[in-house]
Design a protein around this nucleic acid. Sequence first.
DNA 1: GATTTTTTTGGCAGCGCTACCAATTTCGTG
DNA 2: CACGAAATTGGTAGCGCTGCCAAAAAAATC
Lengths: 332, 332
Amino acid sequence: MELKHQATVTLAEVADAAGVGESTVSRVLRNHGSFSGKTRDRVMAAVERLGYVPNRIAGTLASTASRLVAFVIPSLSNIVFPDVLRGASAVLEENRYQAVFSVTDYDPTKEEALAAAMLAWRPAAVMLAGYEHTEGTVKMLRASGCRIVEMLDVDGDALDLAVGFSNGAAGRESAAFLLKRGYRRMGYVGHDLTRDTRAGKRFAGFCETLATGGAPLADREILAGASSVENGRLGLERLLARTPDLDAVYFSNDDMALGGYFHCLARGIPIPGQLAIFGYNGLDIGRATPQPLSTIRTPRVATGQVAAQLVVTNAPPQVVDLGFELIEGATA
Amino acid sequence: MELKHQATVTLAEVADAAGVGESTVSRVLRNHGSFSGKTRDRVMAAVERLGYVPNRIAGTLASTASRLVAFVIPSLSNIVFPDVLRGASAVLEENRYQAVFSVTDYDPTKEEALAAAMLAWRPAAVMLAGYEHTEGTVKMLRASGCRIVEMLDVDGDALDLAVGFSNGAAGRESAAFLLKRGYRRMGYVGHDLTRDTRAGKRFAGFCETLATGGAPLADREILAGASSVENGRLGLERLLARTPDLDAVYFSNDDMALGGYFHCLARGIPIPGQLAIFGYNGLDIGRATPQPLSTIRTPRVATGQVAAQLVVTNAPPQVVDLGFELIEGATA
DNA sequence: GATTTTTTTGGCAGCGCTACCAATTTCGTG
DNA sequence: CACGAAATTGGTAGCGCTGCCAAAAAAATC
């Protein structure tokens, strides 16, 4: 028994084997158009016998209708994006779409290059994070004619479709909550905001509401690099060294907030008695800590699901605000 | 100014505009074959002017050499897989390869279906987790002729390429470490092992060394569902309710271990005085907790990098063991 | 039973590009 | 300046499939 290596079985061979025409095989396989039950069985038998695997590359080229969906995401380290991919991939798989991705490291220039590379695959849609793109990216996407989905933000003008929630509102609501709780001397610990513009929008919203509430931000510590638990710990340490009398700290996200929380645990700083901690994202881990983290839970998986849904149903241009949920927790 | 929507510029149009033949444009664009500097400039100018984006679908079909790499991974919730993707995607991008993925939810049957769907894109390689695949998956992959990379495990027979580390050895080494530290009454808290076979291998290795060391596993708590911090917390709670006199607990991974750690913090159980905790993965968060988590750090990103490297260099079949590192931490 | 209608089918021209080969131009040498 | 070698080019046949159209077969109608 010889092993036929790389024996690429083609549709034509299946047609021969089944004793029908190529287009008939194509119709049966896609369950599109009409054919008799008898020929369907004959075709399927031949497919089975030959181990035929349709070539989607050829199919896509011929039909000029792609079922690829391209994700251009800032990071895979920040759990936000795997969550979005998870939600989207479930929906896409059900609809026989295929997800393709690349990672920009929060670099708009890289985003442009990667978006260009993606467009070369003629995807049905390109899924991006947020609204901040280079002029070149926008121009290219517009010219491509494929659907564009901007995810995880709704504060801005959408190119086509947008799914997410308002980061500005999240920041404002966090501030309002802390003010209501009676905190007056608040600080902020965050990561590089110039790259993560959504974190920047939260911070801006937070400061705005604090100022309006008569308790403007007392101090802040911005760390270079990505958000991480360790950076959160370090950031809070530095912030408190400089401004020890803070009564609450807002973190750029839960990773950072957990770092801050651990710092307090390690130093024996009573939470929230002496210092309140507030995060963003609503990670599961924040619910399992000795004191549940006060934070805002964002619909990350749902964002991916809805984004994918809009694409597969070819929905008209629109902005879908999925909202978020404030979790009181026990750290504020 | 009319907006040409969906104005798919083709290579032929670029050739016309530049006043050269199609093959010349193709050669220039791929920087392959010879052409004069003058024609290159002319071609590039035309490309620029028309906003030409090569169609990789067509290119792939014509060359029958794909630059797609298909990832069929169990999960995106378990940070392990985003980490692997991250390492791989960096290398793939550099080499103008494109990553495609789908998620199996640890279901071998789904893996088979998704692998089949992937092969339809005629990828250069299929990247899978571990060695446990259905017969159908194996047959299909073998027949496809594309490269196969089994990642995150080296305990078994590789189909083609394998990159990772020994889960069995990780379990054994964890046990040896705890024995050396003097723990004698040990327990285990894990998630569904029938699905996550690599966690199963660690557990088996762990038990083996414990038995050899004369201190066989005292009790275990296996939770249904995926690993999570909350499940770790819950698992330890149940385990201790049943067997309060344990002196150390091995967790299926760091997520679970952190849950256990938080449980001890909440209950005031001294660590490691009364109970030692040992994890697996070496997540960053485990280093920022008040007491750094004792665990084994696995080269997840490197696994992705090396896997991608082997594919782009078309390396001969081989198994690459990247090893792992035991981190003593302060919880054991 | 003849004719119309409906359902199934096969043929074939591309989809946009690459690979191969032959034609053309340029260059180097004697 | 002639001539072979080397460097550039263009033409064109597919890659494997889908979409369109016309042909054939089956079913329905009178």
